[in-house]
């Protein structure tokens, strides 16, 4: 009948195992898939990630050199980072924080405008 007593008493007199989020944030393991980012300077805007993304979260505008990901569509499978020819897409362990609206993450090559104005 009292098989649980031992567990319960042991729990009562030991420190709770709770991770005190958000007061203490825990260290994520390396290689955890939390959020996806692109380095706009390295990226060649080939569009391979857009082609292979299973949930169609990535949109690449080759003409204007804009890389957009919708983190609210992304399923964090990591295929984009795996197949990226320049390895410009990186997966960070920090997760995307909740927001009140679905904000897209836009990465754009900064020198683009200058180059265009020179031309």
């Amino acid at each position: 009948m009292f098989a649980m007593v031992k567990n319960v008493i042991k729990n009562l007199f030991s420190r709770p195992s709770t991770r005190l989020f958000p007061y203490q944030t825990r260290e994520f393991f390396p290689n955890v898939r939390g959020s996806i980012d692109n380095d706009p300077e390295v990226c060649i805007y080939c569009g391979a990630c857009q082609m292979r993304c299973p949930s169609e979260a990535i949109v690449v505008n080759r003409a204007e050199k804009v890389w957009t990901i919708n983190p609210y569509k992304c399923i964090l499978c990591g295929v984009c980072a795996q197949i990226c020819p320049k390895k410009s897409i990186a997966i960070h362990s920090e997760y995307v924080h909740p927001q009140s609206s679905k904000v897209k993450k836009i990465r754009q090559k900064k020198v683009v405008e200058e180059a265009q104005s020179h031309a």
Partner: peptide
Amino acid sequence: IITARMQHRVG
């Protein structure tokens, strides 16, 4: 609180 502690939580 005691219930939570018995379940190894902060409560």
